[in-house]
Design a protein around this nucleic acid. Structure first.
Lengths: 137, 137
DNA sequence: CTCTTTGCTGCACATCTGTTCATACGTTAA
DNA sequence: TTAACGTATGAACAGATGTGCAGCAAAGAG
């Protein structure tokens, strides 16, 4: 079960130095929490769909609900979560509430993540192709 | 409770068009799911700390465990999650396993998100905490 | 060989999440 | 005023999530 206090890992000063270096690289606690909460908010397929949809044009709860295929209540709940992280903002016009992306970073974030995801998919496809080549011989 | 089939929202052709436009903007389903899963993986304070630490230099499970203040088992669990999303990779040297960031997008992703957070998500976090407090009671 | 060390994994459990249903709020029209 | 509509909120529940514990495998030390 790992190790106790006076241990090999702690004796080597280089590792201690590594830990200290890494610790200095960490953002302040509240930034870490904010970061994680922002990512967690993005970490839901429904909310990803909402943000991709809003990257084109503003939409009302009603339209989003149809697009997503979930209830308007559920849509409203998700929009509140996105609002709480300042990922979307809304504009009221009469009874309607039109939602849009809150700031420009969000689109770049999504695109950067999309690039990462696609890179993984590409690597997987290349691996699969190599396997098929070998299998074909 | 919203509205039924033949409804105002559907009668105005513009809204129908909006829904169609937005739907076309959506990534394929598998990409949406991959995106969400990647973000969800990033959406945990412990894993954010791991990635920030690894952005400086590679570290072993032992060092990370000390840095994070959690058990080595827990650290290993989290690293497995990060590996499954190709966010970190590892190199074995004897008994030790040295982990590092897997690709360059990850650092940009984190920095972009950090910029968003610093722009004023602190107030948002407080609001979210209030919501969670109320939800927890 | 046996013992230690380092990391990985299955299991369990408390907590959290996303959704729907029912209901309340604010706006517009009659 | 009353009624209808678009949206927001509260309650509740199935399902998922993060972490520690115990056990195991691999590699080196003795």
């Amino acid at each position: 079960m790992g190790h106790k206090d006076a241990d090999v890992c702690e004796i080597y000063y280089v590792n201690e130095a590594h830990v200290r270096n890494a610790r200095q690289a960490l953002s302040p606690e509240r930034e870490i929490l904010s970061l994680a909460e922002t990512f967690r908010t993005l970490g839901d397929p429904t909310r990803v769909r909402i943000l991709q949809a809003l990257s084109v044009e503003e939409l009302c709860v009603c339209d989003l609900s149809k697009l997503l295929g979930i209830s308007e209540s559920g849509t409203s709940h998700q929009l509140r979560v996105l609002r709480s992280q300042k990922l979307v903002r809304y504009r009221k016009e009469g009874k309607m509430a039109f939602y849009s992306l809150d700031d420009a970073h969000i689109d770049s974030l999504m695109n950067e993540a999309l690039r990462h995801v696609r890179e993984g998919a590409d690597q997987a496809r290349e691996r699969a192709e190599r396997i098929h080549e070998r299998a074909g011989q």
